[in-house]
């Protein structure tokens, strides 16, 4: 939005007139109804569960409805260690979610493999196969950290453009919605990373949020 329009809007709101744009209204609705997938992998999942309960209450952000099916979910919180045996299932679940879809990689294991990085059966970060929007470090991260990640995601959704070159992936027909599911190879997963996604260099259009 142009700066003078923004000033006009502020001026109007001072006089008791509320104005908005379709883009703002659309993103406001989306950011306050992000439904996560009921999906936990390891100890981080316990913190994720605690975040949804009364003390931390993720419901304040419109995310209380954890959906038991990827068909109804907008967000997958990869909470915990992704083993190589589990990685294809995580990618398949992500693929089955409808657009727009977001990923929070929660904890040291999900973002890099964490303390098990050199293990024989641990994936060195889920961003090798699916595009991650928010990374949270921690082992495990406290619920406040997850809430912070969630608010970061909301802020990013709020800033997405509806039209133009920078519009997000779900509004662009040329960008894929599914990503390659890795296969079990003789020595590890094949391929070890999706070359379209990893490493996530700046400017890669497959990153949902720039």
């Amino acid at each position: 939005m142009a700066d003078d329009l923004k000033e006009l809007k502020i001026e109007l709101s001072k006089n008791g007139i509320f104005t908005t744009t379709l883009e703002e209204l659309y993103n406001w609705g989306r950011k306050n109804s992000v439904w996560p997938l009921t999906f936990g992998l390891a100890c981080c999942a316990i913190e994720m569960i605690a975040t949804t309960m009364a003390r931390y209450d993720l419901a304040r952000f419109g995310a209380e409805v954890f959906r038991p099916s990827p068909r109804q979910a907008d967000l997958i919180i990869v909470s915990g260690t992704v083993t190589k045996k589990m990685a294809p299932q995580v990618v398949r679940l992500y693929n089955q979610m409808p657009e727009p879809k977001y990923v929070i990689a929660m904890g040291a294991c999900a973002i890099s493999g964490g303390p098990f990085r050199d293990g024989y059966n641990v994936l060195k970060g889920i961003d090798r196969y699916i595009p991650v929007d928010v990374h949270i470090p921690g082992c495990p991260p406290r619920p406040e950290a997850l809430i912070h990640a969630f608010m970061t995601l909301q802020k990013k959704i709020e800033e997405q453009a509806l039209a133009g070159e920078n519009r997000p992936r779900h509004l662009r027909a040329d960008l894929p919605s599914e990503f390659e599911v890795p296969e079990f190879g003789e020595h590890g997963l094949e391929p070890p990373a999706n070359p379209e996604l990893f490493p996530a260099l700046p400017g890669n259009p497959l990153k949902v949020l720039q």
């Binding site: 099916s69 990827p70 068909r71 294809p88 299932q89 995580v90 398949r92 679940l93 693929n95 089955q96 409808p98 657009e99 779900h170 509004l171 662009r172 027909a173 894929p176 919605s177 599914e178 599911v181």
Partner: peptide
């Protein structure tokens, strides 16, 4: 009218908790 449709083999597959 606005959202591009992106169906796919995996997306339309029967949901089985991530397994085939």
């Amino acid at each position: 009218f606005f959202s591009p449709k992106k169906p796919g083999a995996i997306k339309n597959a029967t949901y089985e908790c991530g397994l085939e």
